[in-house]
Amino acid sequence: MDEESLGWDYYQGNNSYVEGVCGDLSDYHRDYTQVAGIRYFIAALYSSIIFLAVTGNSLVIWTVWRNNHMHTVTNYYIVNLAISDLLVSAIVMPLKLLEYTAPCEWHVFNSDALCSVLYYFLPIFVFASVLTLVAISLER
């Protein structure tokens, strides 16, 4: 076998087989996200968290929107927090899941576009959540 036929696994210099090596062997490290069992565990965990977060935040938004007696300033802050958390769980978390579980040979974040989108939206949504919590605490 040669390096190309191994895909994301490489031969080490002494012809011993090394699993989970991504990239150049000079900066060798074991990438546990490339192990199939761990990759499936991370995908299942992230998928369940994404599902629960999208469902829960959507229910909060829908509840406040449908009930007129819940249209208060504090509930609007809570809706704002739910919207920013919904955006994190619907946009950022699937991209992070892709980043963590994609095989090395896919080079998912080699292009500047996807990497820029992820690392542009991530701090915006997180700061929106944090600043909403600050506004709620100041309002009380």
Rank of each mutant, 00 (worst) to 15 (best):
N80S: 11
L81I: 12
I61E: 02
I49Q: 08
L87M: 13
V54F: 05
N75C: 05
L87G: 09
N67A: 11
A53W: 00
N68Y: 08
R39G: 01
T55L: 15
V92D: 00
L45P: 00
H107G: 04
L52G: 08
V73I: 11
E105P: 04
W65K: 07
V60Y: 02
I42A: 01
P94Y: 14
A53S: 15
V88S: 05
K96P: 00
V60Q: 05
M93F: 14
F41L: 08
K96I: 15
H71D: 12
V73T: 14
W65N: 06
T63A: 07
Y77F: 15
V73Y: 13
I61K: 04
V108G: 00
L95R: 04
Y46I: 14
V108H: 02
L52S: 14
Y77S: 06
P103L: 15
D85W: 02
A43F: 11
D85Q: 15
L98K: 01
L59G: 04
I83Y: 04
S58F: 06
A102S: 13
V60C: 10
L81Y: 10
A82T: 02
V92L: 06
I49R: 03
P94N: 12
V64A: 11
I50N: 00
W106K: 07
I42Q: 01
M70I: 04
A43Y: 03
Y46A: 11
E105R: 07
V54A: 04
V60M: 10
L87S: 04
M93V: 15
I78G: 01
N80L: 15
A53V: 03
L95D: 05
V54Q: 02
L86K: 06
Y77M: 08
L52T: 07
Y40V: 03
C104Q: 01
A82M: 06
A102H: 02
K96S: 04
A102K: 02
P103T: 08
W106L: 11
H69D: 14
I61W: 04
A43I: 09
L81H: 10
A82L: 04
M93Q: 03
T63N: 10
T74E: 13
